[in-house]
Write a protein that binds this DNA or RNA. Structure first.
Length: 262
DNA sequence: GTTCTCACA
DNA sequence: TGTGAGCA
């Protein structure tokens, strides 16, 4: 019985895959003690220590190329730099995960509030929203793939955004996306008449908008002279089997709010 | 059981 | 940065 061990034995005692050991070899950070006549890689204590170091550094977030560098020419200063870098990396990862957590909460909350909602029309208090103009289309037409493809600026992550359709008095509908800072349009904070609904076919949309306007007239809401806003909640449509989730909004006039963007 | 290579996430 | 499959 040889004192050296095969790759699968090394893999077993170090809790890694055979593949992974060969991968480390390919990347030049772990050589076998020798190769046997049958071309099997054989490993001894040196390799066990070596692999232990590699796994530790991987756990600390150090990349394989950096591990190679640190093995080739190792100075304590470089080591600190490498570890500082992976510390920074984990910090940004935590931030990204927190953003994801927030987004999941938002989707969950909106989904719950839609499910529990009984009345179709309600008055809602809304925070200020900034919008950036994205595409303009004529009324009574629909967005099609070609139109999107021809836009100069590619739109990031359409699936997770609320898409805002602004219906002003003209014949055009302006399609906008949420912006971080003040941009092309601003929807002031305040009270909005709101209606949530699902639709299956495009023509239902125009009906809904008509109904909304009628409802507002019948109940004599003092609506602001601002565009009607239709919001497509693309991510909520996930929960409604091919139906699309929309909200119609129009701000209710209040005397103490200054009109913005003029 | 192991090697090598290719495709894939 | 690995994994899985197929082959010899």
């Amino acid at each position: 019985m040889k004192k050296e061990i095969t790759i699968s034995e090394l893999a077993r005692i170090m809790n890694v895959s055979v593949h992974q050991i060969r991968y480390f070899e390919e990347k030049g950070i772990l050589e076998p003690a020798y190769t046997d006549d049958n071309l099997y890689r054989m490993y001894d204590m040196d390799q066990i220590y070596n692999l232990a170091h590699i796994l530790l550094l991987r756990k600390l977030g150090v990349s394989v190329p950096s591990i190679k560098q640190s093995f080739d020419s190792f100075t304590p200063g470089q080591f600190e730099q490498v570890l500082q870098h992976s510390l920074l990396e984990t910090t940004t990862q935590i931030e990204q995960l927190q953003e994801l957590q927030q987004f999941i909460r938002k989707v969950l909350q909106e989904q719950l509030s839609f499910v529990s909602q009984t009345t179709q029309y309600q008055v809602r208090q809304r925070k200020i929203i900034h919008l950036t103009r994205w595409v303009e289309i004529k009324s009574h037409t629909t967005l099609h793939a070609r139109l999107l493809a021809e836009q100069a600026a590619p739109v990031p992550n359409l699936f997770e955004l609320d898409i805002h359709y602004l219906y002003d008095s003209s014949d055009a509908i302006t399609i906008c996306l949420e912006a971080q800072q003040s941009s092309d349009f601003t929807l002031p904070a305040g009270e909005y008449l709101s209606s949530d609904f699902l639709i299956q076919q495009d023509h239902e949309l125009d009906q809904r908008i008509e109904q909304f306007n009628e409802h507002a007239a019948v109940h004599a809401y003092a609506l602001a002279e601002e565009p009607l806003i239709l919001i497509e909640k693309s991510y909520l449509s996930l929960f409604s089997h091919g139906k699309l989730h929309f909200e119609i909004l129009k701000r209710i006039q209040s005397t103490d709010v200054l009109k913005e963007g003029e």
